[in-house]
Design a binder for these strands. Structure first.
Ligand SMILES: [Mg+2]
Length: 239
DNA sequence: GCGACAG
DNA sequence: ATCTTGTCGC
């Protein structure tokens, strides 16, 4: 259950960039998924009242997409947002929320890029390495790369490849008819084709796939509090 | 040097 | 990301 820390998070810009280049070499873009029964969505928001980073993880059954678990984890904000270094700001708290899960997900969808990143290590790829679980990056806007906007159909399900430096790093996917597309890219332990398949399979008629949509909502709901831990992995039970 | 730039 | 009410379109 516990994962041994891969590295330090509070790094200077230069060290963070060097680390990304190193970690990117370990990314696996082949499918290493077993049967998928649980899919998780993660996201982070700022809790102004607490001046804290508020990360959320929502576990859904697959393919029913029913909510099975929800957790929140708050901690002091560590870094400002810097394009290309998002994982150093959001991943630590996301991992904190993730560690509260009773059931380990078979797949994780992240609000941000997978390998569609300048150094091929967006937050979804980074989290995949840390958690050792297949991950998919589901970003709402472009960070890097180009695509043929004219070729992209307006119907839900259509998509076009996202290219960067002659490489296909992801896909621009229309998840809802006549609505701005999503930028999908594999994170770790999964292929682009399979990533697109699961994102569409997790759609409920909204632009965002259900895992990410639920996590986004929970991370922004400052009124939702983590329910008292149930018995099961606690050490103390009542007298 | 200039423009782009996940959340 | 966040600021924020109504408004336009399916
Ligand atoms: Mg987010």
């Amino acid at each position: 259950m516990p994962r041994p820390p891969l590295h330090e998070w509070n790094l200077k810009t230069e060290a963070a960039i060097a680390l990304q280049n190193e970690l990117a070499q370990h990314i696996v873009l082949e499918d290493h998924l077993g049967e998928v029964h649980y899919v998780a969505g993660v996201d982070m928001a700022i809790n102004e009242e607490h001046e804290a980073a508020r990360a959320a993880v929502v576990l859904l059954s697959y393919p029913d997409l029913e909510i099975v678990e929800r957790h929140i984890y708050e901690e002091p904000i560590r870094m400002p947002y810097v394009p290309g270094l998002l994982s150093f700001r959001e991943a630590p708290s996301v991992i904190g929320a993730f560690e509260q899960l009773r059931q380990r997900p078979d797949l994780v969808m992240v609000d941000g890029q997978g390998i569609a990143h300048p150094r091929r290590l967006g937050i979804a790829a980074h989290l995949g390495l840390w958690l050792e679980i297949p991950t998919i990056g589901c970003a709402k806007s472009l960070l890097t790369g180009k695509y043929n906007k004219e070729e992209l159909g307006e119907e839900a399900g259509s998509w076009v490849p996202l290219i960067h430096r002659k490489e296909t790093i992801g896909a621009v996917v229309r998840t809802r008819t006549r609505v701005n597309p999503l930028f999908i890219s594999p994170g770790h332990l999964i292929s682009l084709e399979t990533s697109i398949r699961y994102v569409l399979a997790c759609g409920k008629g909204y632009r965002l796939p259900e895992p990410t949509r639920q996590a986004d909502k929970l991370s922004k709901d400052n009124d939702w509090v983590e329910p008292p831990a149930e018995q099961g992995q606690q050490m103390k039970l009542w007298p």
